Each structure stands twice: as structure tokens, then as C-alpha cells.
Amino acid sequence: MGNGLICMPKRDLRGGVGSRSKRTSNSRSQRKTVSEEELLHRQALAMAIQQHQLSQRFNGSMSRRIGSTSSRRRDLPDSITNGRQVPASLENLETKKIVLVHGEGFGAWCWYKTISLLEEAGLHPVALDLTGSGIDHTDTNSITTLADYTKPLINYLQDLPEDDKVILVGHSCGGASISYALEHFSKKITKAVFLSATMVQDGQRPFDVFSGELESADVFLQKSQFLVYNNGRDKSPTGLVLDKQQIKCLYFNQSPSKDISLAAVSMRPIPLAPIMEKLSLTPENYGSVRRYFVQTLDDHMLSADIQEKLVRENPPHGVYKIKGSDHCLFFSKPQSLNKILLEIAQLS
């Protein structure tokens, strides 16, 4: 998967005089490293539990918000304002509700930095667990359609008061979920923001977005060692589980170690059926909502070239670029992401 990256641990192949003492020293160092890693994982687990408790408190969701943007492209530097100084223009917005939709394997917990920054700015973010994700205990192997997978988002939109509107933000394969929502609830959505996401066209599958990075669908399904066949090897695969080291290479090549550990204890298997399903999108519904795409320029999961292709083939209203961000910009560049969302929120 990805760009064929393989992460291998470094080895010291030297020997000779003093090698025993070196091995003893190395073993102590390894024990220390293991101890530090265990502590890190415990801290990350505590963080995950805290975020899950927050999710339960808010009915499995947390609040957020966005707006609209111009068609100009922007390259953002590393350090950006943290959103604590609330511009007067944020007080008179079309909506302050921003719904954050995670990507494959993630959950509402991945947005904890973004939620905090948006709330400090006076917006109302809501992060949802899609079916079989986060603290939703549905067996991922039982999810057979994109509608099933996206149901928590659909339920949220259905329950909105008649005059309420929201901004949708989707990450990675969450782009398919917000595209599905745009087609069915366009009247309740003011804008949609795709974060290095599957911004598919009519008749396209989310998997097709990654086909340039992977092999063809048929070859991938035949060869992949990460597939789960819950219904038997003679049936279609039902899920996808990635090796932790591979996930680190593909998703978190610029993310802090604590966030990587948080992901290690929180990520769930990926239901395969939703990303293999073709979407039906119309100009009257999907096409009536303003879309914005945020490109991550140091992304090993969805390369800059593939992201550029998405933008070129399905042009959004505006494009932003973040330098030095891996696939998970909410971890690697949260301040830059917050800056973009606040700017989009002020556009009409």
C-alpha cells in the first residue's frame, strides 16, 4: 500500500572486542525504551478513555464548525494563530456548527486537538463515531453498505431542527461519507471541507481514489495479507486490518509520538464494503453545496499528486495546502488546520 514504504528497525551488525559489554548496554537501553513505550501507551490509553467519556457525555459526538472559502490556493506555514483571539466576524456566521467526520479506522477521538481549538474560537464542533468506529461497538465485518457506515451522520442531520445548518468536515475515506450526506441532505449543509479526503465523482468508489497508490482492486483483493474474510475465504472480504508499523509509515510520518500511541490503542479495523461502493451524486444535490479541499503536502497515504488529481477532476470552490503535514493533519498540523477552518467559516 501507499508508496511502497517499508519501515524496518535499525540493527547494529558490528561485533568484535567489547561486543558483550555493548550487548549488555544495548539490552539495558532496549529495556528502558520498552519501559518508556509502555508508559507512553498507558498515557495514550488514558487520553483515549478520556475522549471516549467525552463522546459518551455528548451522545457520541463533539461539536465543531466551519464556513466557506475563496478559490485561491494557500500554502500555510508551520506556525499559525491558535484561534484564541476571536475575530468579530465570527460572531455573525451562517452557522457555528461544524461536524467532524473521521476517516477509515479512526473515531471521534482523533479530533481532540481540533475540537479544543474550535471551541476556544467560539464555534460549536461535533465529532461523530461512524458505525463500527470509536466507541460504537458494531462489528465492522457486519457493515455492508456506505449507508450503514454513515448512519450516525445521517441520524444527526435528520435530527437537526428545520432551520439549522452545519458545515461538514471529512478526513480521508470520511470524504465518501460527507459526499453521501451532501447528496441526501444538501439543504442542511452550508459547506463541505475535504481533508486529504476521497472527494469522489458520480459513479466512483472511494477505493478508486487510492488505486493510483495501490494496485488494481482485483489484484489488491487477491494479494493483500491484511484482508479479513469473516464470511469465509470463498466470499468477498469484509474488512481490512493494517500492521501498526505500516500505519505509522503511511498515516503518521510527521505526527507526535503521543498521538501515534493514541491511535495505536484506538484505531479499529476498516469495513471494506463502504469503500468499494460506487456513489450516486447529482448536480442538484451534491453539486449545490460549496466544497473545499485541504491538501497535505507530506502525505504518504494519499500523495500530493493524487490529491492534485482529485482537485483537477472534481474542482472544489477552494483549495488550501499545508506544508509539512502527513495524512493526519489534525495531529501533525492542528494549528494550521484550525487557521483554515476559521478562515473558511468567515467566507460567504
Results as ranks from 00 to 15, higher is better:
residue 261 S to I: 02
residue 275 I to S: 00
residue 202 D to T: 06
residue 251 Y to D: 04
residue 202 D to V: 10
residue 209 V to F: 05
residue 309 K to S: 14
residue 291 R to V: 06
residue 240 L to C: 06
residue 259 D to F: 13
residue 229 Y to D: 05
residue 279 L to H: 09
residue 313 E to L: 11
residue 213 E to H: 08
residue 283 P to R: 01
residue 216 S to T: 15
residue 289 V to A: 09
residue 222 Q to E: 15
residue 217 A to M: 14
residue 220 F to C: 10
residue 285 N to I: 02
residue 261 S to P: 12
residue 295 Q to W: 09
residue 237 P to D: 07
residue 254 Q to W: 07
residue 316 P to K: 05
residue 283 P to C: 00
residue 296 T to S: 15
residue 210 F to Q: 09
residue 273 A to T: 01
residue 275 I to Y: 00
residue 318 G to P: 09
residue 238 T to Q: 01
residue 213 E to A: 15
residue 235 K to I: 04
residue 304 A to D: 10
residue 281 L to W: 00
residue 314 N to D: 08
residue 262 L to C: 09
residue 250 L to I: 11
residue 281 L to S: 01
residue 316 P to A: 07
residue 213 E to N: 11
residue 214 L to I: 15
residue 289 V to G: 11
residue 299 D to I: 00
residue 231 N to L: 10
residue 244 K to V: 11
residue 231 N to D: 13
residue 227 L to F: 08
residue 268 R to F: 02
residue 231 N to I: 00
residue 318 G to Y: 03
residue 244 K to M: 06
residue 220 F to P: 11
residue 240 L to A: 06
residue 314 N to R: 03
residue 217 A to G: 07
residue 212 G to M: 04
residue 278 K to E: 09
residue 260 I to V: 15
residue 252 F to H: 02
residue 280 S to R: 13
residue 240 L to Q: 05
residue 215 E to I: 01
residue 283 P to Y: 01
residue 205 R to Q: 15
residue 295 Q to N: 13
residue 254 Q to I: 00
residue 292 Y to A: 10
residue 313 E to W: 05
residue 224 S to P: 13
residue 277 E to D: 04
residue 285 N to Y: 07
residue 311 V to C: 14
residue 289 V to F: 07
residue 259 D to M: 07
